[in-house]
């Protein structure tokens, strides 16, 4: 017996929560198929396939039919380059952060060293600290370092060190590491060192032991950590905003820029693709975690 009475409030709250969470997303997806060029009102779906025909600001017919804005998107060089940047940053930072974060988790699990408690604590700080503070901090660090290096090495013009893709990548690696480490650490809880000892006892050296025994056993944790790092990097705005430079625009930064000009359903199409990718990742994560138990 449930000791709590079902109050009607629960139903109302549930509906409201779902409404505010999902109505915007559904609206966003519906508007990706909008025939109107302006995002303010819905002009119906584009139903005709064929050469592009416009009537005023309404698309009557498109070679891609209802998927007009998605095709339109692929024609947009800026979007394509932002997508490329975003994926490059996400891939490199995910791989690096996963490797470093996993190694950190293993070290914290395995060894006793001075400052171990501090190291553990220092993992939480980047997570709880406001992102904007981190962003400003990283920006200050880079500009100070670059100023110093540029002047002391006498770098001029194009050869000067400036903000760009590499600085974004480094920052993303930095803020992803704690998340990876914490996720892998959770997996390592109760990891018995006798598995590794058994492998070595049977003739496997340290390296073989790691790849054949330790890594497969912690792989679900490592994958969860990597996917988390990937999604964090994909949609990071604040830190990227502070550390990016010319030619290193990412999707979040690009969309933000669009919003200040004119919102066309292109943005919706882009966001729809994005939502689908993230949902796919979340499903994958859930699959991994349910297999873990």
């Amino acid at each position: 017996m449930n000791p709590y009475k079902r109050s009607p409030f629960i139903k109302v709250a549930t509906v409201l929560v779902y409404f505010f969470l999902y109505a915007p997303i559904i609206g966003l997806i519906v508007f990706a198929f909008n025939s109107s060029r302006t995002n303010v009102f819905f002009g119906g779906f584009i139903t005709q396939w064929g050469p592009l025909q416009m009537e005023g600001s309404t698309v009557v017919q498109s070679p891609c039919g209802p998927f007009h804005w998605f095709c339109d998107l692929t024609q947009n060089r800026e979007v394509m380059s932002a997508t490329k940047n975003t994926l490059t940053i996400a891939l490199i930072s995910t791989i690096s952060a996963t490797v470093i974060g996993t190694m950190a988790a293993l070290a914290l699990q395995r060894y006793n060293f001075k400052l171990k408690g501090f190291s553990q604590l220092s993992l939480y700080i980047p997570i709880v600290i406001p992102e904007i503070v981190m962003g400003i901090g990283i920006l200050v660090l880079f500009s100070q370092a670059f100023n110093f290096l540029n002047s002391s090495l006498g770098l001029l013009g194009d050869s000067r060190l400036t903000l760009g893709l590499p600085t974004v990548i480094v920052s993303h690696i930095a803020f992803s590491i704690p998340f990876v480490t914490l996720v892998v650490q959770a997996r390592l809880q109760g990891f018995d060192k006798s598995f590794e000892e058994a492998a070595m006892d049977l003739g496997a050296n340290e390296l073989v032991t790691f790849w054949r025994v330790t890594f497969p056993m912690i792989l679900p944790g490592v994958l969860s950590g990597a996917l988390l790092a990937f999604t964090l990097s994909l949609d990071d705005f604040v830190i990227t905003f502070f550390t990016t430079g010319p030619g290193a625009t990412t999707l979040p930064i690009y969309v933000y820029g669009l919003l200040r000009r004119i919102i066309t359903p292109q943005v919706n199409a882009l966001s729809t693709v994005w939502v689908l990718v993230v949902v796919a990742i979340v499903f994958l994560l859930q699959r991994i975690q349910s297999r873990e138990t």
Binding site: D192, S194, F195, E197, A198, A199, D201, L202, V213, M217
Partner: peptide, 11 residues
């Protein structure tokens, strides 16, 4: 030498 562990430590 080879060891049989108390916890078995099977992979």
């Amino acid at each position: 030498v080879n060891t049989v562990f108390q916890s078995y430590a099977l992979f």
